[in-house]
Write a protein that binds this DNA or RNA. Structure first.
Length: 554
RNA sequence: GCGCCUGUAGCUCAGUUGGAUAGAGCAACGGACUUCUAAUCCGUAGGUCGGGCGUUCGAGUCGCCCCAGGCGCGCCA
């Protein structure tokens, strides 16, 4: 509905310009809002105000020209169009037009909410990308939920989306992993195992070592340390990666591509990237190391890509990785990182620009910390000791649905407090439950109705029965859904969806308590069945975008 | 010291990219089940939007300066 108003305004302005009633160009973004005050109508626009300053006329005069034109062209759609305050134009849409939304929803089914906002542009979204050195923990869970949901939102708003997981399977941390496992293995063999200072502490390391022991017995004792560590490293990373895949699977997340860092080395892509930068005079040698001139692109200092000892930095791989992304021709590249990597953004952006990419098409979404609570009391975690709470533990305790919702109920750059007890509650305090319950309630109504021979049928229903009061309020909320998704996509902010669904569920619960859907009035019942069926569809669709089930019975 | 994020009701947070009188939920109090799911709903209260200055028709939103908290600032990953 909102985009329809925008379209009308655009057409109207176009005509006014061609008739020379307005001389400036159409603003590229016409702003239409839902006003906070009910008296102001259903929609409001401020177009007249920015235009006024360019036209050198009072805003209210401009507004009146626009209003006159729209009344002429599309007057039958509105019950009133008024000019208010400094120059707002307020629209009140006729109920007949509002109820049409129900038809859209029931006809389009799961496609309701779809739009062509993204114009088929290719978007790559890389998320989770945890090193295969340990299981996924809570923080990864938040990144996973955000990334997956954002991908779904971008898809439904008309982008072509690819999801990717980047595996850091090269570098020091992998050797540390190998040494850690080998040390535990030696312990199991009754040997002196000097556990590395910087080793991985978690119990999972012992478990992996035990598996190696079970499979190889004492064999590794006869290997050189180097060979043994390498075996442990490969065994462990494979095992851990398998675990990560399983965790993501049970979290409902699938990737289109698992991109291994080692392939960059094998295919010489890092060298290639460095050579390209070198040819553009963006690489220089200093103190025996190779530096990238990231300051040329706004970074605060230049960055090392090859250390004095000849080994490459993590950043070097990342440059090559993003060069690979650029070569794949995406219109938008989204990386989801932990907020502790924020210092990394300028240099990554610099690298992209240096390689000829558009810095503005690169977006690094930073995900803030998650802290766990249990009924308001903090659950302490220490990564250093390996005492972190894993994603698997969370899913096992509160379930996939609650976990996903909780990870999405704050905007990314806010700290998130995840209360495990709240997530398990079956009451209106728990937002997931509240939304799912609304859905189940509707299913129950539809079920009962169908036993009475009543089914929602948009062709047969007289929607005049739902064009007032609580019914109309619900319809207006449903009509917001498509533009809400666009707004999520535009700002890369999936959390709005969780708020929207909560609000819609609240409106429904309130409606439910005041009004009977199935009543003696057959016409009213049929119309309301269409209404609640539409609510059910939007709830289900929204939840599915968030990766949350919509149970029919609870 | 420099940079990024955060600061909105007692608590947890929204605020649609500068719009009209700043909103939810929880907690508290009082009510509603002979009902399509009471696992729900209705009503009542709460504010110097951290502070200050500026930009303009208009600021929670933008700029600058402070204050508080978090996180970064490696030839670590």
């Amino acid at each position: 509905m909102k985009s329809k108003i925008e379209e009308l305004l655009r057409l109207s302005l176009k005509e006014l310009i061609s008739k020379h009633l307005i001389s400036s160009a159409i603003p590229n973004e016409i702003q239409v809002d839902r006003p906070t005050q009910k008296e102001f109508g259903d929609f409001a626009t401020n177009v007249a105000m920015p235009l006024a300053s360019r036209e050198g006329k009072p805003p209210r005069d401009i507004a009146s020209i626009i209003v006159h034109n729209i009344k002429q062209r599309h007057g039958n759609m509105f019950s009133s169009i008024e000019i208010a305050g400094p120059g707002f134009i307020n629209f009140k849409v006729k109920p007949e037009y509002w109820v049409g939304v129900l038809g859209d929803i029931l006809r389009d089914k799961d496609a309701y909410g779809k739009s062509s906002y993204g114009k088929g542009k290719k978007v790559q979204i890389e998320f989770v990308s945890a090193n295969p050195t340990g299981p996924l923990h809570v923080g990864h869970g938040r990144g996973a939920a955000v990334g997956d949901t954002l991908a779904n939102i971008l898809k439904i708003t008309g982008f072509l989306v690819e999801r990717e997981y980047y595996i850091n399977d090269v570098g020091n941390q992998m050797n540390t992993l190998g040494r850690s496992v080998f040390a535990r293995y030696l312990e199991l063999c009754g040997e002196e195992g000097d556990f590395p200072e910087d080793g991985y502490q978690g119990d999972y390391i012992r478990d992996i070592a035990a598996d190696i022991k079970a499979r190889y017995q004492d064999e590794l004792l006869h290997y050189s340390t180097r060979e043994a560590v390498a075996l442990c490293r490969d065994f462990a990373s494979k095992r851990i990666l398998k675990g990560i895949r399983e965790d993501l699977d049970s979290f409902g997340i699938e990737f289109d591509r698992w991109f291994s860092e080692s392939t960059l080395h094998e295919e010489g892509k890092i060298q290639k990237a460095v050579d390209i930068l070198k040819s553009r005079d963006l690489i220089y040698t200093s103190d025996g190391a190779l530096w990238f001139r990231s300051t040329r692109f706004g970074d605060e200092k230049d960055r090392v890509v090859r250390k004095r000892d000849g080994t490459l930095t993590y950043f070097a791989s990342d440059i090559a990785y993003h060069m690979d992304k650029l070569e794949r021709g995406y219109d938008k590249i989204i990386d989801i990182w932990g907020a502790d990597h924020h210092g990394y953004v300028p240099r990554m952006r610099a690298a992209i620009e240096a390689l000829g990419g558009d810095g503005d098409s690169f977006h690094a979404l930073l995900i803030q910390l998650v802290s766990l609570e249990r009924s308001g009391r903090p659950v302490y975690m220490s990564t250093r000791k390996g005492e972190f709470v894993t994603l698997k533990e969370i899913i096992d305790e509160v379930g996939k649905d609650a976990a996903r919702y909780f990870f999405l109920m704050r905007k990314c750059d806010s700290h998130l407090v995840f209360d495990l007890e709240l997530a398990k509650k079956k009451s209106n305090e728990n937002p997931v439950f509240y939304i799912q319950y609304a859905h189940a309630r509707i299913c129950s109504i539809l079920n009962k109705a169908s036993k009475m021979g009543l089914v929602p049928d948009i062709g047969a229903a007289d929607l005049g029965y739902v064009s007032r009061g609580d019914d109309l309020a619900l319809i207006k909320a449903l009509a917001d859904y498509p533009s809400l998704l666009i707004s999520c996509a535009r700002n890369l902010e999936p959390h709005h969806l969780s708020f929207y669904l909560l609000e819609l569920a609240g409106l429904f619960h309130s409606f439910y308590n005041k009004n009977k859907v199935i009543s003696d009035n057959r016409e009213l019942s049929l119309a309301r069945l269409c209404l609640v069926d539409a609510v059910r569809q939007v709830l289900r669709g929204g939840l599915s975008i968030m990766g949350i089930d919509a149970p029919e019975v609870m």
